[in-house]
Design a protein around this nucleic acid. Sequence first.
DNA 1: TATAAATAGTTAATTATATTAACCATTTCC
DNA 2: GGAAATGGTTAATATAATTAACTATTTATA
Lengths: 170, 170
Amino acid sequence: MIEKSIEESIVLSIFDLSNQLKKIGDEVYQKVGLTTQQWLILLHLANNPNLPFFKREEHKKALMASELADSLNVSRANITNLINVLLEKGLVQQFEDSQDRRKKRLSLTKQGVALVEKTQPSRFAVIEYLMEGFTKDEKETFLRFLEQSMNRIINDEERIKSFHKMLVGV
Amino acid sequence: MIEKSIEESIVLSIFDLSNQLKKIGDEVYQKVGLTTQQWLILLHLANNPNLPFFKREEHKKALMASELADSLNVSRANITNLINVLLEKGLVQQFEDSQDRRKKRLSLTKQGVALVEKTQPSRFAVIEYLMEGFTKDEKETFLRFLEQSMNRIINDEERIKSFHKMLVGV
DNA sequence: TATAAATAGTTAATTATATTAACCATTTCC
DNA sequence: GGAAATGGTTAATATAATTAACTATTTATA
């Protein structure tokens, strides 16, 4: 019998919630031929200050594909594919970096900006509805919690995996 | 310019954190030839009381594939495949329901139980480490927050999607 | 009580989403 | 000046899922 644990309940709920949000996102954005992943790229290119990526590090210059790969935690090759769709749809544009000719900087087109702006209110409405009834303080504490967990995962990844050393050879 | 919003930061962080946890899970459980999804099935069959599924509804009888499909929010066909691997590995067993011969009940084998029990301490250690430093009260508030969000998504899914009606025809 | 509808599980074919490996071009580091 | 690192792409592949069709069984209904 596994014992009850608030901590494990939280982790499993985060998993569950994230799953559901992704499903809903995929269904909603499918209407404009996008996936949740592609939508996240648009949010990055819109410099959405609420993205964990922008809290971890500042970015003055336009993003490039490899930075998106970092943020979304996927391969560069995958980003190439995701971006190709956005380019075809005319939501994103690419230009060479003047200093470093290996790099391609990405930005939203006028249409891309318009799409993000247009959907902003409804996204905010959904989000507000989900967490209605909690105080600002509670939300701030919750955010700190999520950020601490992420930091520990990023900085101590090896340590975390080492907790599971015992699994080898089962 | 998108404005700062605690609420959106929380949602995007949940996404990010869940992603990272899944990546780590896949890497860790790969050592025993399992994916995070298969691992979650084992947790269900171990009747882990921390799973949102068991908080939403009580289950006296052994679970069946379609209930797992509900909980993990995937198709039944997919569950069939996931379970086949667990059956091959001898971690799970299947038996027919005596009352209803359509149904197949699932349970852990001795080995399955052993595996779950063996890894329990390390899983708990990781989880505790992630949320170290927060009080019991704070954690309880997080959990209530997550549960409310999930409930609203489940009960008001149509309402949530309707927020995005405007997307059609962009 | 016969029949239609619903439920549970499986299979086969397919789609979606990602990865790895190899490669080119360019820049950075000794 | 040459080796190593970085950024992006391509092609081949892996994986994880889906849908649709089917069987078996049970439940609802007319």
